[in-house]
């Protein structure tokens, strides 16, 4: 019952976002092009590096493309489903407009972070998926249904992890009122997710692979597709997804208690 309730709310928001997009078609077109172009830049970088070398940290060109495609796929989904809402949340907390969400019929974190869809990112997720499929085809991969299922599950876990990290960062606005620079920091950190895990050594391995999850988020699904089902990897990623999500919910609710609207 509750699930259906939230699904209905979400579908209403989605319908509203799509209608808005249809009103500003030119805008949709330009932003879809922007994202497409940035994705192409990433893919070109891989191609140029592999013009000069056969392997990077043991990954061949198409293995690397599969990794980059996976990382872009997760990012597109995050941007498509949550980015605008999460980004606005920071501003709303500062301006006091966050009151609006407190009065809505549902969990505040759900309401505040799922209000807007970005159809341009969702369209581009198809492009990212094509990169993954194309690379898998070039590698002659014949993944089992289990591997494909796990890949999808890991991508979802990846979205949960990215979502949690972003909401966590923005939640600090409850304390500091300013969450500026989060946008830039997210994009810089997401650069790490396009690197193979084997390239990280020493301190970098501890920080970016073990302490922060961005490297494993994209590496795990790619590895699952390349090398088949690995239960320990699946358990690890699902574990950190649950952990980060729990911490985020806790911090968000703590912050919410501090929220006192804004004086004007």
């Amino acid at each position: 019952m509750t699930f259906l309730h939230y699904l209905r709310i979400w579908l209403t928001s989605a319908r509203y976002s799509i209608m808005r997009t249809l009103m500003f078609r030119g805008d949709f077109f330009v932003w879809a092009l922007v994202e497409l172009f940035w994705m192409t830049v990433n893919i070109l970088m891989v191609s140029v590096i592999y013009e000069h070398t056969k392997s990077v940290a043991g990954w061949s060109k198409y293995e690397m493309l599969l990794l980059v495609g996976t990382s872009l796929l997760i990012q597109r989904f995050l941007m498509g489903f949550f980015w605008s809402s999460i980004f606005e949340m920071g501003r709303n907390i500062r301006s006091g407009n966050f009151d609006f969400y407190l009065a809505q019929p549902g969990n505040v974190m759900f309401m505040a972070t799922t209000r807007k869809l970005d159809p341009d990112s969702l369209v581009n997720s198809l492009v990212a998926l094509s990169v993954v499929i194309y690379s898998a085809h070039q590698l002659n991969l014949q993944p089992s249904f289990l591997a494909i299922g796990c890949y999808a599950l890991l991508v979802v876990a990846g979205i949960v992890i990215h979502y949690s990290m972003l909401v966590l960062c923005i939640s600090f606005a409850f304390w500091f009122t300013s969450a500026q620079g989060i946008e830039g920091s997210y994009f810089t950190l997401s650069e790490f997710s396009r690197l193979p895990r084997e390239a990280f050594k020493g301190l970098a391995n501890i920080v970016f692979v073990w302490a922060l999850p961005m490297v494993i988020v994209s590496n795990a699904p790619a590895q699952m597709l390349l090398h088949g089902f690995k239960p320990s990897l699946l358990a690890w990623v699902l574990g950190i997804a649950t952990g980060w999500f729990a911490v985020t919910v806790f911090v968000f609710n703590r912050g919410l208690r501090r929220y006192s609207s804004a004086s004007s």
Partner: peptide, 28 residues
């Protein structure tokens, strides 16, 4: 803040290119 994140970018560059250079004395 911007300067700080530029150095994160430099870490990405370092990791990526040192992996690409493993086994290659020169690139281009």
């Amino acid at each position: 803040v911007r300067g700080f994140f530029s150095f994160f970018h430099l870490i990405v560059v370092f990791i990526l290119w040192s992996a690409a250079y493993t086994g290659n004395r020169e690139i281009g």
